[in-house]
Design a binder for these strands. Sequence first.
DNA 1: CTGAACTGTATGCGCCGTACACAGTTGAGG
DNA 2: CCTCAACTGTGTACGGCGCATACAGTTCAG
Lengths: 274, 274
Amino acid sequence: MPAQGAGNAGGADAVRPAQSESSPPLPPGLDLLWGRRGRGQRGPKPGLSVDAIVAAAIRIADAEGLEAVSMAHVADQLGFTTMSLYRHVASKEELLQLMWNGSAQGAEELVITGDDWRARLRMWAMVQREMIDRHPWITQMPMAAPPMAPNSLTFVERGLEAMDDSGLPDADKLRVIGLISSYTLSEARMAHDAARAARQAQAATTGTEPLPAWTWEGLVREVADEQTYPRLHRLAWSASIGDDSSGWNEEEEFRFGLDRILDGVEVLIRTAQP
Amino acid sequence: MPAQGAGNAGGADAVRPAQSESSPPLPPGLDLLWGRRGRGQRGPKPGLSVDAIVAAAIRIADAEGLEAVSMAHVADQLGFTTMSLYRHVASKEELLQLMWNGSAQGAEELVITGDDWRARLRMWAMVQREMIDRHPWITQMPMAAPPMAPNSLTFVERGLEAMDDSGLPDADKLRVIGLISSYTLSEARMAHDAARAARQAQAATTGTEPLPAWTWEGLVREVADEQTYPRLHRLAWSASIGDDSSGWNEEEEFRFGLDRILDGVEVLIRTAQP
DNA sequence: CTGAACTGTATGCGCCGTACACAGTTGAGG
DNA sequence: CCTCAACTGTGTACGGCGCATACAGTTCAG
């Protein structure tokens, strides 16, 4: 169904498609992200704005998790009715996209420092990880298409900038950026999913139970017999993996993988330009 | 609320907690995965089974996407009522976990071949990627906790096996496995999200529109001005990134990253054992 | 001054996960 | 053999979800 109903009595459609003029219309969702949605001046002053909606949604997601972000919840956080949101946002999915972009606010004034490409790229990855940790719910989002939001592009630009002195062809720089982002995002996702699972396992056994607090090694010991999983069995029964008593240091794990990747990039750079 | 309501008239609880005996009860969800859920013999023969439910759910997810997997849909695919599923599965979340494990069926008879650790590890990653591609919906799943399902552990065991001749300490082998899995999963996720986005962008413009078919470069050209995104601008306006005309070969991109990671692992192995 | 453009509201639909009470089926223990 | 507890599947109902739609009130261009 096209956006402009022909003889439809009364109601205007929720959001207008584009600002017209030269450029071809962007895919739906992206137009708003890049400020290309029309704004007439005829009606009453809007008491609600896209920014306010997105900010409220992010506040909720930070405080109560992504699953708590419903149109109704966001709306009455703002003191409006549910349907009022649809005057500014086409759908919940679009709101989620805007939240994604909003979570990366501050990427503009981000400065990546370091003596060489390796130090800078490392910092770039750590910053990305920190941004995700500040808004863990972004690891649960659909993530439609390659990142095309303004803040995402800014971040990619910073990554390319970090590799200015690498001597790699631009296409390879982009691939390296993609590689590191993939890893960082995935690692953050696993960390937060695990944390969430642990948290709600804790919540499930309120009070009464002695709460066994399963560790990864403990579970493997319980479940993996020696015949079918000899190596895992050995690993789980050998001395604790992590150094400290609690075992399993996530941050250390992340840095380990990152350094392996950077080693690989170094090999690429060295072989490309002798 | 504990599972056993004291004076509750009539109804037995949906699923019994554990099989008793020695071992301490596993966290909820895992007990079923590892076959540690009790089964009495008193009642009528069940016409429904966990396996049938999981198989039906996977069939739906493969054919119509994960969002089409609802308890109602699964149930009447099997010719039963919605609520009947809850006699075999504690919740939808548990069903999703079982689907995850079920999607990795066939991991037992998987054989990883190759002359050295590098070839084997590469094959291991490619196999993982293919398994994900066969069931793209697993990239959309919550993924509670580190992978503890039997098939997941089998797969990890195979990865460790692939590195038998690497000379690395076991803990490092595990970290390498984790690094590669993270990357593979994330890359697969991006690829499928992009594919899905493209598919439904296509579906949105049925018939009438000339469907512009945006490429990544095209979008960047449209949106990224030279001042704020100089490197991206240059990249997008230079000759097409991919080699063929359609640009952007996902498989090649995946292999690029994988080879970088393997290079990094090689560095680690070489420096660890001279 | 009028009417079109615009903002927020109220109502309602279909779908979701699942709590709960219930009827029918089976096998173990008396 | 009978009985009754254990068990399986059903029916109904509830609260929450995203969102279509019709509507009432506000503002500015003509």
